[in-house]
Simulated assay, not measured.
Amino acid sequence: MNVTTNAADLVSVSVAGRVANPAFSGLPAEPYRLTAEGKAFLWPTFGGIVYNVSVGDSAFGWSGDCVHPSVSIAHPDANKNRGLNVFACVGNKATITSGAAKGTTGTVTGKSGRFSDQVIIHFDKGTRAKIAVDDQVMVAAEGVGMTLPDHPGIAIKSLSPRLFDLLPKKAEGEVLKIGVVATVPPHMVGAGAGLTSEGGSLHMQSTDRAELAKHGLDKLRLGDVVAIADTDSRYNHGYLRGAMSIGIVGQTDGPRAGYGPGLTVVMTAPEGQLGAYDAPTNIADLLELRP
């Protein structure tokens, strides 16, 4: 169904970053991290060019910790990186502007990092083979400031008008319902709670595999659209009874407590204005990102 937006009034602006290199902090504990059971591990983590993980693949089972599919970018200047992370929206077009893959386009599929460190961009595997770390990527950022005049209680976050139009949805009275793969209950919300919702990700806890299966979350794929119950993300992510957020699975799970698949929140409402219904929705299909 068509839902009225103010898309015609939105500003489309360039933001840019470089293909990020995976990094570890200088703390003495690095590069080792601890599993939920207290065992040290060393696996690939977020950042870099990931050649064999793509949107549409499973969010579970990889020997990695919160891995980003395809390519991650960041700006070396912290303030400019914040601008990149705030303004880039899922579904935006990204163009490589330097290196062997110059001129090739991709699509923003998520954001990550405790403090909005990186933007995740899908490029096909052939393009990934040509990209180098530090190649420049420019995003035609559009979506920040989008509103729904007929549903003023719903806040839009990090969502391009193009992807919003493609999402399955239906209105039941004043409630706008979005088609989702599953619903994350509030007790499974993990890392990211309490932080800003303008960038970064909100993680789903996944160390209790039985609880995952109980809620139909154990088969999630990167790019799946999910609901997050009793979660208000208008400003900071937090618990609020009756609220709901809609997120897109942007990162894989990992062995650390509190860090399951990372979700990029794209819609939120505090008082029942936003709902969900069962529908097999993945942005790899909506945005035609599969080979």
Rank of each mutant, 00 (worst) to 15 (best):
Ala101Arg: 11
Asp165Gln: 14
Tyr239Arg: 08
Ser98Asp: 05
Thr104Gly: 10
Ala171Leu: 12
Gly250Leu: 03
Val225Phe: 01
Ser12Ile: 01
Ala36Cys: 10
Thr264Cys: 11
Lys39Glu: 15
Met244Ser: 04
Ile283Phe: 09
Arg33Tyr: 10
Ile73Met: 11
Arg33Glu: 14
Arg114Gln: 09
Gly242Asp: 08
Gly272Val: 04
Leu84Asp: 10
Gly247Phe: 10
Asp232Met: 12
Ala74Leu: 11
Val71Pro: 10
Ile228Asn: 07
Val67Gly: 05
Ile248Ser: 09
Val119Thr: 15
Leu176Asp: 15
Arg33Cys: 02
Gly275Trp: 08
Leu286Gln: 13
Glu288His: 15
Gly262Glu: 07
Thr268Asn: 01
Ser58Val: 01
Val3Gly: 08
Val139Gly: 12
Ala8Ser: 15
Pro22Leu: 01
Trp43Gln: 14
Lys130Ala: 13
Val225Pro: 00
Asp165Asn: 12
Ile246Asn: 08
Ala284Asp: 14
Arg114Glu: 08
Phe46Lys: 03
Ala36Asp: 13
Thr109Tyr: 04
Val119His: 09
Val3Asn: 08
Thr35Ile: 06
Gly83Asp: 07
Gln273Tyr: 07
Ala284Val: 10
Gly26Gln: 01
Gly26Ile: 01
Pro185His: 10
His151Glu: 04
Lys214Trp: 06
Asp208Leu: 05
Val67Gln: 06
Asp77Arg: 07
Thr45Cys: 02
Ala23Asn: 01
Gly179Asp: 08
Ile96Pro: 04
Val15Phe: 04
Asn6Ala: 07
Val3Trp: 06
Gly143His: 04
